[in-house]
Design a protein around this nucleic acid. Structure first.
Lengths: 199, 199
DNA sequence: CGGGTTTTGAACCGATCGTTACAGGAAAGG
DNA sequence: CCTTTCCTGTAACGATCGGTTCAAAACCCG
């Protein structure tokens, strides 16, 4: 019936995500996206509509992927503090692997919040991240509240607050990694952050 | 001898810093800078040379100002943990005031790292932030090491690691504030972060 | 193998990017 | 008052921005 596509949609999204992650939304041009994905301008616009729509799709895919990975680590056995520690350690291991493979450091969601927080024209991207953050906070809150109930986790701070704290720690780790902190320091941050949760 | 300037350099830098802070380096145009500062294109370029040079000056001034403010809070009396808590609390109070006055939230240095970490053409800005971060880490390390020596601060994590942790906590607070976290959550984060330092 | 449908490449759109050129205006020294 | 020196506003520079147009190419189905 018709001429088929010569590219794989998922591969294109992966390449575009990598570029947005590395350079940010505003600094990434359509020309660079074409070069990185290998497809022409009309194919890109015919498939995704606009640069903003492509970014929204990349961001959504990124958020879903990382949310799933987070849920898997959190769901492992062990007490609540150990699960949080495993979660934070996973972040450090990711940064270690990324810096050795040339992949971008930090977190696309954190970068997007930092870049677009004052950008009224692109508030939709912030809402995407906000929805993801809310879901992540609910997951962490449930885990930490259960930990408080069983005495593994301190009750000096409400579970919602501890969840926000864990979330902030991840962002802090990501920014620290982007700032060039050595792996040993990132590991120290995890150790310190974990201490705060114990009774 | 010559015609004098009709604007105040410091006021221009303040207005430009506010705009860069709010919108980021790449998304801030020369046109917007002229509008925000009130001066014409040629005056702006005649005075600062280029958009990048202006940003470097804004960033340097911001870093110096905040470094001084940090040093003042850290130098106050009290034990090491109380000083760190005062430092983190100050961050939260700043965010509270900014959100009520319409000033930009978050931190220009954090935003710059997130936006420019993968930007090889603007590595000079990252170096500026890196120098500031190194100095801040030295200050924190000294304080925390003294706290460890007197037993006020845990020795489970080396002082350099605790300093990196405090620094990461500030970045996490800033990103959380930009992401829309309510003040009560930010205060919880400070309480939790402070717990990690105690023996 | 030919008709119908979709993708593709390349040229092109107006707008805006960062930056510069230049003519005229305003103050201080003589 | 006139020259000198700098500053200012306007207009424009080439380059690039995100996005579109369109004809030709490529494929599937009959």
């Amino acid at each position: 019936m018709a001429r088929p596509r010569t590219f794989d949609r998922e591969q294109v999204l992966t390449a575009a995500t990598d570029l947005f992650w590395r350079r940010g939304f505003h600094a990434t041009s359509a020309e660079e996206l074409c070069q990185a994905t290998g497809l022409g301008r009309s194919s890109l616009y015919n498939t995704f509509g606009s640069k903003g729509a492509l970014f929204a799709e990349c961001l959504g895919r990124y958020l879903d992927t990382t949310a799933q990975a987070t849920a898997e680590v959190i769901a492992k056995s062990g007490d609540a503090v150990a699960r949080i520690e495993a979660y934070l350690t996973k972040v450090v291991l990711e940064e270690a692997e990324r810096s050795s493979t040339g992949a971008p450091s930090g977190c696309l969601a954190v970068n997007s919040v930092a870049e677009l927080a004052g950008d009224t024209e692109n508030a939709e991207f912030l809402e995407q991240v906000a929805r993801d953050t809310d879901a992540r906070l609910r997951l962490l809150t449930d885990l930490l509240r259960a930990g408080q109930a069983s005495g593994e986790v301190t009750a000096e701070v409400p579970a919602e607050g501890l969840a926000a704290y864990v979330n902030a720690s991840v962002a802090g780790l990501r920014i620290s990694a982007q700032g060039g902190a050595p792996l040993a320091r990132l590991a120290d941050i995890v150790q310190a952050a974990t201490r705060a949760l114990r009774p």
